[in-house]
Amino acid sequence: MRSAFPLVRTPHPVPEAERASILAAPGFGRHFTDHMASAVWTPEVGWHDHGVSALRPFSLHPSAAVLHYAQEVFEGLKAYRHDDGSVWLFRPERNARRFARSAERMALPTLPEDDFLAGIEALVRADEPWVPAATGERSLYLRPFMFAAESFLGVRPAERVVYSVIACPAEPYFPSGDNGVTLWVSTSYTRAGQGGTGDSKCGGNYGAGLAAQVEAERHGCDQVLYLDGAGEQGCVEESGAMNLFLITSDGELVTPALGTILEGVTRDTVLTLAPEYGLTPVARPVTFEELREGLADGTITEAFASGTAAVLTSVVGIKGEGYAWTVGTGKQGERTAALRERVLGIQYGRVEDSHGWLRRVV
């Protein structure tokens, strides 16, 4: 039986006119809804104090473990408004399972899948007016997260942990849209190593990647493309906030194998849909030399990155120290466009959900 997250409504919601103004141009991650879901874990009681209440700041002691040891994990998913006014989630069960795996890696308590789903659904129902119409690919972005809240300075797993979900109306993550993005190949920074936290969705991974993102922007690129610890003699991994895909001239859809990269929900979706578009999905190591040669001789015809925020975003160029490569025609490829429209079509209810990926909330 699903755990309850009882609602206590805020006495001070954002006025309707102000909310309408925000929804007209929400940006990404700038405006937040009226409520938040939360729960607390302690070893004596387990998970307790489930509820949805007014969005509010946390009060933390300066010695709170998360501030010193980065014991924290999070997720990202969206709620989509369909044309009939209903609101749906897309494959939230996979987010729940990845959240549990990330928590285990960071020595945090595992939140039951039913609790994960119940908290998200309760928040979406409470803040349903904040879910935008599908115009311009708008959605309600949901951020579940968990952090060590115990006050102590010893290096051990915390014995007080807070779980929460917040939400913000969102436009597409990349303002360039279908124009695509250019990636900077970093040889200065490595994202993850074997046995590390590369396959976990924890804040430390993203914090450590900010310097690489700044480097990419300094070279006129939108995102960084990471290599493994062997650098240009090794393999390609993933982008700063997205999984990477390459389409080859012989009809393969190639993506780096799991192990040190994040197991993306959109990544799995694309791999599942690929055969319907004449593509053979292949997850394997991709060497930097293979990337270089494939772009030079046209073996790699299209490239794109995938993620909840990015959906499918064309990669039109790849740069590094001393080189700048164009991917294919330098524009969004036909198969990339077709896959992108299919994923969005399912999420917004415009095409049949033949895989049972949608979950209705409202």
Rank of each mutant, 00 (worst) to 15 (best):
Q223Y: 11
D178A: 13
D178C: 05
G198S: 01
A170E: 06
D178H: 10
D222A: 14
N205V: 01
Y226V: 07
G209M: 09
L210M: 14
C221T: 12
K201I: 00
L183W: 14
G209D: 06
L183Y: 14
S200K: 08
D199N: 13
N179R: 15
E232T: 15
Q223C: 02
G220R: 13
L225P: 00
V214M: 13
D199L: 04
T197A: 11
A230C: 11
T187I: 11
Y206I: 03
N205A: 11
Y189D: 08
N205D: 09
K201T: 01
E232D: 13
H219Y: 10
C202K: 02
Q223P: 02
N179T: 07
E217S: 13
G229R: 05
V214I: 10
T197Q: 03
T197G: 00
V181E: 06
G198C: 00
E215N: 12
S200P: 04
G203H: 03
A211D: 02
A230V: 05
A230G: 06
G198V: 00
L210R: 08
S186H: 09
V181F: 10
A212S: 15
C202A: 03
G196M: 06
E217A: 14
S188P: 03
D222T: 15
G204W: 02
G198E: 00
E171I: 02
G231A: 12
F174M: 14
V214E: 04
W184M: 05
V214Q: 07
A208M: 03
G193C: 08
R191G: 03
F174R: 03
C202M: 01
G209I: 05
A208V: 02
E171G: 13
F174N: 03
G193M: 10
G231Y: 10
Y189L: 07
G209H: 09
